[in-house]
């Protein structure tokens, strides 16, 4: 499994964990194009926080270094890293390149 696939699997796993906590009618689609934030997203703010926490925790454990997805850099971007699963995957790969170059 290459790094992109590994990161994508971590994010999708976080969404699957979230779905376990949500009523069936509120569950989110789990896939690379799933919107996380913005008008097309179905996650409420607390659900998005849950996903971010799960992804951060999994990344931190996997790469053995604290990883924050919500620092100033993420928040100041023109295109939010949290638009979709795909944009979040790209952002995580960028962060990982800094702490553990592939």
């Amino acid at each position: 499994m290459d790094r992109r696939e590994e990161v994508l699997a971590i994010i999708l796993s976080a969404l699957e964990s979230l779905n376990l906590e949500l009523p069936e009618a509120e569950r989110v689609k789990v896939g690379p194009t799933t919107p996380l934030f913005g008008p097309d997203a179905t996650l409420d703010s607390l659900s998005l926080v849950s996903v971010i926490v799960d992804v951060e925790t999994a990344l931190t454990m996997r790469w053995d270094a604290p990883i924050s997805l919500t620092d100033d850099r993420a928040m100041s971007r023109e295109i939010s890293p949290f638009d979709t699963v795909g944009t979040l995957t790209d952002y995580v790969l960028e962060l990982l390149q800094e702490i553990a170059p592939a």
Binding site: T57, T60, M61, D64, A65, P66
Partner: peptide, 13 residues
């Protein structure tokens, strides 16, 4: 703060 986060990283293990 970073030392605290590292301590929690250890706890998670």
């Amino acid at each position: 703060p970073m030392a605290i986060q590292k301590a929690f990283l250890g706890l998670h293990k």
